[in-house]
């Protein structure tokens, strides 16, 4: 579904991605973890060509996106829904208009139908009462959920989440985890989740990849990730009080 082939990216003097290779299969929930500045957001941005690699290729659904023209790029981007790290809602539109925006821009649906679809999606995310509020008047957790609603309203094949739980309280974080799992189960989509929250990673991931200084140090299913021999991975696990002896299944919640 998504394939990185020897991708290298330099920004300023720093090599942010250094010969990165990985593949995300269809229907997977692929989690990218790593310390701040490891290159996680940069990796996500490459998938939708908000950034282009200095060398290497990125393939989406069997199609190399590195040299696509504007039309084709648009067509590839249609496959994606993206939840940005800052939610990236338009400040002058209320919650409902923000979520309705892709529908209004790209479909010929009648206004009543748009409202209906948006209202249903907002209800699903527990935002029934907030539809007429503006982004500056709602909490960070609500903004993230609105961003999520906007990301999935066009029913994309792939959803990218950049730190869906950062800055949220543990209870809301777990709810977002559930949302990610539910969204995947209901829509059968492929997800890529960027996070530094290992609890979240273990809860939602079918595969976990760790980036460190622009290189992949581990890429394994959660049960193997937690027992990784790599020192960087181990210290990352320990920093969040997760030990090798722990059972990763405990992090899954029903």
């Amino acid at each position: 579904m998504i394939k990185f082939d020897h991708v290298t990216k330099r920004l300023g003097r720093k090599t942010v991605l250094d010969d990165v290779n990985f593949e995300v299969g269809e229907g997977e929930t692929f989690v990218i973890v790593g310390l701040s500045g490891a290159g996680k957001s940069v990796t996500l941005k490459h998938m939708i060509r908000l950034m282009s690699p200095d060398s290497g290729t990125i393939t989406i659904d069997g199609e190399a996106i590195t040299d696509l023209g504007r039309r084709d790029l648009s067509r590839v981007r249609e496959k994606f829904g993206v939840l940005f790290q800052s939610a990236a809602l338009l400040q002058w539109m209320n919650v409902r208009d923000n979520v309705a925006l892709p529908l209004r821009e790209h479909t010929k649906a009648a206004e009543e139908e748009i409202i209906e679809r948006v209202t249903a999606k907002l209800a699903l995310l527990g935002l029934d009462d907030a539809w007429d509020k503006f982004p500056s008047d709602i909490s960070g957790g609500m903004r993230k959920r609105v961003g999520l609603a906007r990301a999935v309203i066009m029913e994309p094949k792939i959803v990218l989440y950049d730190e869906p739980t950062s800055g949220l309280d543990p209870v809301t974080s777990r709810r977002i985890d559930d949302l990610i799992v539910n969204t995947r189960e209901q829509l059968g989509i492929t997800s890529v989740v960027v996070t530094h929250d290992l609890h979240s990673a273990l809860a939602v991931g079918s595969r976990i990849m760790m980036l460190h200084q622009g290189r992949i140090v581990e890429n394994a299913p959660p049960e193997d990730f937690i027992r990784s021999k790599n020192e960087t991975v181990q210290s990352f696990l320990e920093s969040q009080y997760i030990t090798k002896k722990g059972k990763w299944e405990e992090f899954r919640h029903e």
Partner: peptide, 13 residues
Amino acid sequence: VSEEIAALEVMSI
């Protein structure tokens, strides 16, 4: 700076 422009581009707006 708050990624709203990037979000528009991804939505092909």
